[in-house]
Amino acid sequence: MSVLTPTAARSGVAGHLRQLEDQSVYILREAYRHFDNLCMLWSMGKDSTVLLWLARKAFFGHVPFPLVHVDTSYKIPEMIAYRDRVAREWGLNLLIAQNKDALANGMNHTLGRVVCCTALKTNGLKDFVAERGYTAVILGIRADEEGTRAKERYFSPRDHHGEWDFRDQPPELWGQFKTSFPEGTHIRVHPLLDWREIDVWEYIRAENIPIIDLYFNRGDGTRYRSLGCAPCTFAIRSTAKSLDDIIEELRQTTVAERSGRAQDEGRGMEVLRKDGYM
């Protein structure tokens, strides 16, 4: 049996989740309409997998742009297996971006987390975007993840160096986004900005989206709440074995989602994101 084909299809979600879905679908369609050369990042985590699902919603079962995995080579091995399986079953056009030079020179987190993230993720992405000439990149970041993302736009320009000028962001109103831009720059598109962590899980449950099982407690009393590179992501103590359990756990918690992510210490994310991090 395939785990990737939902068993119980339904007539769609309702209420708040439907509103979030409608908005994300609208944004995805705007992005597809306005940019000929665009791609979507997929990290196999819950957020970007929901994003991928929303693209299939928006385009009626198709994903009309390539998916890019920025591969640091330090991902948890199950993630790669899951990636390849989903890509094959859903017929995705999957591209792998990797900063091979940095890896050849031995880049790893012990050289400093911000240094490593910048080299392998930020630069891995920036080089790939520049090389392929993408004018738009769709990403699954959410405003409730951390402070700098709370200030993002749905369509957020990046300059010639791929950097984010948060001091001078374009106005965004009435569903009209920044879709024209000078040569050599690109736009980051953020369809999931309004989603909270719990919305993502409730949507996964309502739509029956196949999700990687690292998010569940598989018997050892821990699970991942947020997935990144193996050395810098830590499992949390949890008994949650099912989607229902996870949702219940999130309703009770007062701990921030990314507390298991080392980059968020100090001003780590602020520095990373100005530089063009996801």
């Binding site: 939902p6 007539s11 769609g12 919603k57």
Partner: peptide
């Protein structure tokens, strides 16, 4: 009215 992942027609 088209949909994705729906069982009955919209």
């Amino acid at each position: 009215i088209e949909g994705f992942n729906v069982d009955s027609p919209l």
